[in-house]
Simulated assay, not measured.
Amino acid sequence: MNHTIITSSQAPAAIGPYSQAIKNGNVLYTSGMLPIDAEGQLQVGIIAQTEQILSNLQNVISEAGFTMEDVVKTSVFMTNLEHFGQMNDVYSRYFDNHHPARTTVQVAKLPRNAEIEIELVAIKQQPNQ
């Protein structure tokens, strides 16, 4: 498999045997991102957590030469869907001109007792496409 491991110092380091992202050709797959800053501090509250995650993801995809406009799919995992509106308000600022496909599900628990985790897939268009 011809893939490249992507790592950004502007996002939290992986806390296990995985990569922040993998680039394969013109496709980028990120791991699920928690609301942790680059120093390892967990943010508090759904608004701050969503903001931190999307900022982290933006930094990781930028490291690979992608932008938020290249994102085609996101998956959002939340421990409480009653916070969906607040999450969606923050999310919409990152995807204001472009709306990738999205799955949002409620889960029982996330690592570090986070309220939210987000992963994404981005595709960089090839020239002449």
Rank of each mutant, 00 (worst) to 15 (best):
A64P: 01
S62Y: 01
G32W: 05
T67G: 11
M78Y: 03
H83N: 15
I36A: 00
E51W: 03
G45K: 04
V72I: 14
V60Q: 06
I46M: 09
Y29A: 12
G65K: 08
Q41K: 13
E51I: 03
Q43A: 15
Q49S: 06
E39A: 15
Q52E: 08
I47L: 07
Q58R: 13
V60A: 07
N24L: 15
L54N: 00
L42H: 08
V44A: 09
L54T: 03
M33G: 01
V71I: 11
G25Y: 12
L34S: 07
N59C: 10
N80E: 06
M78I: 09
T79E: 01
L81H: 06
L28Q: 05
V72G: 06
S62N: 08
N24C: 13
M68C: 04
S31K: 09
I36V: 11
S55E: 13
V44R: 10
T30M: 05
T74V: 15
G40S: 06
Q52C: 10
V27L: 12
E51A: 10
E82W: 09
F77H: 11
M33P: 01
T50R: 00
M33E: 05
D37G: 07
S62G: 11
I46C: 05
N56V: 06
E82F: 10
V44K: 13
T67Q: 10
L54R: 03
Q49G: 02
Q52S: 03
A48S: 12
E82Q: 14
V60W: 02
L57Y: 02
G45F: 05
M68A: 09
E51G: 02
E39N: 15
I47K: 09
G25V: 11
V27K: 10
L34W: 00
L42F: 05
D37S: 07
N59M: 08
Q49A: 05
A48K: 12
K23G: 06
T74P: 01
Y29C: 11
V44I: 14
Q52Y: 01
Q52L: 05
A48Q: 10
L57R: 00
S75C: 12
S75V: 15
I47T: 11
G45R: 06
Q52F: 00
K73L: 14
L28N: 05
V27R: 14
I36G: 00
V72H: 11
E69P: 02
N26M: 08
A48N: 11
V76Q: 02
H83M: 14
Q43W: 09
S75W: 06
M68D: 07
M78N: 02
N80T: 03
S75D: 12
T30L: 02
E51T: 14
F66G: 02
S31P: 00
